[in-house]
Design a binder for these strands. Structure first.
Lengths: 274, 274
DNA sequence: AATGATCTTTTCATGGATGAAACGAAACTG
DNA sequence: CAGTTTCGTTTCATCCATGAAAAGATCATT
């Protein structure tokens, strides 16, 4: 590519268009008009020398090169966002965890947030694993030690699952329409026939608390929940370790460090209590 | 700062102005006029919310905040330069070493460069230590193991110094006007009175080969030089180890890896020969 | 097949960013 | 200390990137 022609500002616009999935969708994010965005995208493609998008009638779709570029520029973005802060670390710390851990962290939000000043927190609750190496998330909670280089890992503890309900008499299971190990385990059970189904794991807890169903929950969630008791033994197949993962370079920033320590403390006390 | 106002393109212009040391000096690098550069710099300062420059009559001088920003953006630049290359690694690999090691590497340029394709090499021969953590240099050769995180180190060998000349009868020393350990050592010698002086270490070798002076040289340079012989024993105070230092993340890029390996081989064979 | 919806792209008038030239300020120079 | 050089800044006419509007393209729906 000819990097002399590459306008850095266009990279940001590319980021917006790539994320929004099209020109018109990116208009509100960028403050630029669709024609301008279209022209800038052509300029980026000319500069990097490759097809970045497939122009479909319903919008733009990233090519493989485009996906690659998106990941790299997303990395740049987080660095640029913290540029003006002169040693105070990133302006927004992203926390990526499964929905249960996110739930617990949200309950303890005050302990995590206290004294952070202008730093904002952003919870990314997604079951699929984000690519932390590209710093799409600064702090991650994972169920296995990542093999990638440049990541700092700390073992938090061990997570166990069990069936929970308001009482043994509650029979039907709640089914969670997500591809998680616990959902897969439940689907494989013979007696889970007439299950209620929810799309969000959090609603499974709500239903269980309402006394309507039994739900597969991590013990650190189920045991802490008033009114719920274990209606099955712990499920060995679902047990796994839990790791706190950070990008190597950023974990020494004061505000990142503080958030890591607090999450670690919260998580440890959870597992100690269980 | 208000990152919504920050124009990424302005960051590149900042980089040029900061490096050039002023607006007019940055005109040729950027293709923008001085008035425009002045306005863009004001915009950057407004966006990051701080004074980046001291406007002196002879040009711009960076404030502490400005220095900080420069280092961070220099990091961004190397990442952006390799953006369009889609997995092929950085477009330009920077090699930072002392002048003697640079000299040797330049002599072996073909072995290093062979089969690199479009990747360009850039030798940074500076006696002062560059900040490799900010990726201003991708590959560095240092005389001690750096303590910073995220750097991969490989010990190359041990460097010894001695006095060299075309014969024992050559008495005067050549003085090198650079702040290096060897120059300091020579200045501390009592019998270095009527020395010739050069500013570039490389010229000291030229003078010694011409039979005019004796010079303090690393043995891997002096021994390999036709017509030069040792006129002093090795100087123990100047002996030091030599390390090959890389940024942790980039050393696995194929083209970086290749250059590292070749430099390592060249350096090893140097020290084995000595 | 026709209609509508939802995109992108083209057209074209406009305004804001741009740079040439003039100006001003400070530091060398003899 | 005047002359000269070397910067940055201001001014202002110019021009190019920009966005509104229209056109074009494709899919969804009836």
């Amino acid at each position: 590519m000819d990097e002399t022609k590459l306008n850095w500002e266009d990279l940001r616009l590319f980021l917006a268009v790539a994320r929004a999935g099209g020109l018109s969708a990116a208009v509100s994010d960028t403050g630029k008009s669709a024609p301008t965005l279209g022209r800038r995208m052509l300029a980026v493609e000319a500069a990097v020398g490759g097809e970045l998008f497939r122009r479909l009638p319903r919008g733009y779709e990233l090519t493989e090169q485009g996906e690659d570029l998106l990941a790299r520029i997303a990395d740049l973005e987080t660095q640029i966002q913290s540029l003006g802060r002169f040693g105070r670390g990133p302006a927004v710390i992203k926390i990526s965890a499964g929905s249960w851990m996110t739930y617990v962290l949200c309950r303890h939000i005050h302990a995590i947030q206290d004294g952070l000043g202008a730093t904002r927190l952003q919870f990314i609750s997604a079951e699929h694993v984000l690519d932390i190496a590209h710093r799409e998330a600064v702090i991650g909670i994972r169920n296995r030690r990542p093999e990638q280089r440049g990541l700092a890992c700390r073992k938090i503890g061990h997570v166990r699952f069990a069936g929970y309900a308001t009482g043994k008499s509650v029979r039907p299971w709640v089914r969670v329409a997500v591809k998680t190990p616990s959902a897969a385990w439940l689907a494989a059970q013979p007696d889970s026939g007439d299950a209620v189904e929810v799309t969000s794991p959090r609603n499974a807890l709500d239903l269980a608390c309402a006394g309507a169903v039994r739900a597969v929950l991590p013990t650190f969630v189920g045991d802490a929940q008033e009114g719920l008791l274990r209606v099955t033994p712990t499920i060995p197949e679902l047990s796994h370790d839990q790791w706190l993962v950070t990008h190597d370079e950023e974990r020494f920033q004061p505000n990142v460090r503080r958030v890591i320590d607090r999450i670690y403390e919260i998580a440890r006390s959870l597992h100690r209590g269980a």
